[in-house]
């Protein structure tokens, strides 16, 4: 059985910035446990000789020319914003520092 704990789910929720309720953490812990039990089997066949596939159709060197295109106006940019000062997006005080 999986070893997922409530502490782990709480940590994941923090990484994912979701303020889960204690009830949600409890139910997610058991659901995740059951899902992980079902999906963990991938490691059975993922032997070192098998390369990973990240893109279904292999392409490479897809670039665009360094030519400017159409930009948004600040009105368009801010139209959907929950809060702004007329030209910039406004957020409440930031606790943590830049990364």
């Amino acid at each position: 059985m999986s070893e997922i704990t409530q502490e782990q789910v709480a940590h994941l929720a923090n990484l994912a910035r979701i303020a889960l309720t204690p009830q949600e953490i409890e139910s997610l812990t058991s659901e995740l446990g059951s899902i992980v039990d079902n999906v963990a089997k991938v490691s059975e066949v993922a032997t070192p000789d098998v390369p990973a596939t990240s893109h279904p159709i292999p392409l490479q060197n897809v670039y665009r020319d360094d030519e400017p295109g159409v930009t948004l106006t600040s009105e368009q940019a801010l139209a959907g914003a929950p809060d702004h000062d007329g030209s910039r997006f406004r957020v409440t005080a930031i606790l943590g520092e830049e990364q």
Binding site: D66, E67, G69, T71, L72, T73, A77, S87
Partner: peptide
């Protein structure tokens, strides 16, 4: 460069806030 790393917005960040942007930069 003339444009940004992943979008066609001009690579210039002085000027009016939130104008040198495309949906990608936002």
């Amino acid at each position: 460069t003339r444009t940004k790393m992943f979008s066609t917005a001009p690579n210039y960040f002085g000027g009016e806030p939130n104008t040198n942007i495309t949906p990608v930069d936002l």
